[in-house]
């Protein structure tokens, strides 16, 4: 449908680049949002198509489109994998700039702060993207262009006043639900493996294995967006559901853009102390550093951990 053309002054420079996207869809397998919803409109290619439609005026700008444009975890896997060289995140950032100027502000996957905020400003100081600010009369405000949905603010807020509204299955509640469901539905279940999207993504992207392959599964790999977001309750959940152990995979030192691996290490150490105080072998929770995309190493680490757990047996 041809509508009155809105000027997207930041986005328009990408018109040629958008034509270069050959729409092969090879970005699908890399996008945590698409893998969660399986809707093509959540995939990077879908967003390129949308940006093209906005520029040509073929699609009318709506709040739904704005919401979609403010949704991205900036893992940039799509961009790294794109052989056509389409700078999808830069394109989306320029679209966001235009949208803000047109009066839209998300939130999509950008964080929001509840009214219960105590204004301690810890999140403002901690934000690595300079996206949070305190404004008199408004409280904490988030810049929806600068916010990269890294979740540091969510993790650091002492009163849990910060949330990322669209989490695409990567929030603590969903991880908790899936860990519990796996452990309760499989008599063979022994462990939960938390893997970071930056250092690992699974081979099976969009299909379900047959029952014969999954009924005796010993562990479930749950991919989150950063090891730093795994809170203590989530690390405890598997143990409360009779798991034998928990393995946490994070990026190597110096490779995490926001020291999430350091935060994860601290939590795992604390959890080890908790287990010890309960007379449980602290080795039942273990953290490993996995370089980006090194699936072989990750599998080897999982195998070693499972072997250890099998020697230890269930928690009595």
């Amino acid at each position: 449908m041809q509508t009155e053309k809105i000027k997207f002054k930041n986005l328009e420079k990408w018109e040629g680049m958008l034509a270069k996207c050959i729409r092969c869809g090879y970005c699908y397998e890399h996008c945590p949002m698409f893998k969660f919803t399986r809707w093509e409109s959540d995939a990077p290619r879908g967003k390129n198509i949308l940006a093209h439609g906005l520029l040509t005026g073929e699609v009318e700008l709506t709040t739904e489109i704005a919401e979609k444009s403010f949704s991205c975890f900036f893992c940039k896997r799509c961009e790294a994998a794109c052989s056509s060289g389409v700078q999808i995140t830069d394109i989306m950032l320029d679209l966001r700039r235009d949208l803000v100027e047109l009066g839209y502000k998300g939130p999509g996957t950008t964080s929001i702060t509840a009214r219960s905020c105590a204004r301690c400003l810890q999140c403002v100081r901690a934000c690595p993207h300079d996206a949070r600010d305190f404004v008199d009369g408004e409280g904490i405000v988030v810049d929806p262009v600068k916010c990269k949905s890294c979740g540091i603010c969510v993790e650091i807020c002492p009163i849990e006043a910060i949330t990322i509204p669209l989490s695409f299955g990567t929030d603590t509640a969903e991880m908790d639900r899936r860990a519990t469901e796996f452990l309760q539905s499989h008599t063979s279940a022994k462990a939960i493996v938390f893997a970071c999207n930056w250092s690992y993504h699974s081979d099976i992207q969009n299909s379900k294995l047959p029952e014969s392959e999954t009924h005796d599964k010993e562990y479930e790999i749950l991919v989150n967006l950063c090891g730093g977001r795994l809170d203590k309750n989530l690390l405890l959940t598997p143990f409360l559901n009779q798991a034998w152990g928990v393995l946490v995979g994070v990026c190597p030192d110096g490779e995490c853009t926001h020291d999430g691996n350091v935060a994860a290490q601290k939590r795992v150490t604390k959890m080890k102390q908790t287990l010890e105080s309960l007379d449980i072998n602290p080795e039942r929770i273990h953290l490993v550093q996995i370089p980006r995309g090194d699936k072989q190493l990750f599998q080897a680490e999982i195998d070693t951990f499972m072997e250890k757990l099998n020697q230890m047996g269930p928690i009595r």
Binding site: M1, I22, R23, C24, G25, W39, E40, S41, G46, I49, L50, G53, E58, V59, E60, T62, E64, I65, K68
Partner: peptide, 19 residues
């Protein structure tokens, strides 16, 4: 089900030259 114009627009494309 998806009926939002944004979804319909996106699903209007594949890897071909058409929309």
């Amino acid at each position: 089900i998806k009926t939002d114009p944004l979804d319909l627009y996106i699903y209007g494309a594949d890897a071909s030259v058409y929309h």
